[in-house]
Simulated scan of single mutants.
Amino acid sequence: MARPNLQLIDALRRTARKLKEGAPYQWGHMGGCNCGNLAQELTKLNKDQIHAYAMQRYGDWNEQVDDYCTASLMPIDLVISEMLGAGLMLEDLKHLEKLSDREILKRLPAERRYLKHNLRDDVVLYMTEWANLLEEQLLARIQLPDSVLEPATVTV
């Protein structure tokens, strides 16, 4: 699972909001699909740039992730590297493309757990819940010093 951090949580929420508000979405387009929309937020590249980079090699996001190489100078590998630098793991990208991470899905109401990977509203729900999960994980790691937890003493 992704490393919880503010940048990634914010990018997931911005992506979900933009999709909900009608941002271009096309599951078969490498720059306009689930991963492509998140990549736009994390890299500041547009959908056509991401798609063009991906088309320099074969395959969908799953195949691109399988062929990812940290030493490669392939543009799509640089995009993936930037996404990983934001806290994602390679498996997160595969799960995002298929909306299949069990940890995220089990948080959804039982009647909403069977998401369609190419349905905009399901992508919005998945990204929103993923952001919520990462936020909870981030907050759970924060420990305040004991002095902050003690009630303040007022001197009169």
Rank of each mutant, 00 (worst) to 15 (best):
A2D: 02
A2W: 02
A2K: 02
P4I: 07
P4E: 11
P4T: 09
L8W: 03
L8A: 04
L8I: 05
R13Q: 10
R13S: 13
R14P: 06
R17C: 10
Y25K: 09
Q26L: 15
W27R: 07
W27Q: 10
G28L: 14
G28E: 13
H29L: 03
M30A: 15
G32I: 14
C33G: 07
C33S: 10
G36D: 03
T43C: 05
T43G: 03
D48E: 10
Q49R: 04
Q49S: 01
Q49F: 02
H51M: 09
A54C: 04
A54H: 02
M55T: 12
D60H: 14
D67W: 13
Y68D: 02
C69Q: 14
A71F: 15
A71L: 14
S72V: 10
M74I: 12
P75H: 01
V79H: 00
S81E: 08
M83H: 03
L84G: 02
L88W: 06
L90W: 03
L90R: 08
E91W: 06
H95I: 10
H95C: 12
K98D: 06
L99G: 03
S100C: 05
R102P: 12
I104W: 01
K106E: 14
P109S: 05
L115M: 04
N118K: 07
R120K: 06
D122R: 00
V123P: 00
L125Q: 02
M127N: 07
E129K: 07
E129D: 08
E129Q: 13
W130M: 04
A131T: 00
N132W: 06
L134E: 00
E136Q: 13
E136V: 08
Q137P: 01
Q137S: 02
Q137M: 08
L138Y: 04
R141K: 10
R141M: 12
I142L: 09
L144K: 11
P145K: 04
S147A: 15
V148S: 12
V148Q: 08
L149G: 07
L149V: 10
A152G: 13
T153K: 13
T155L: 13
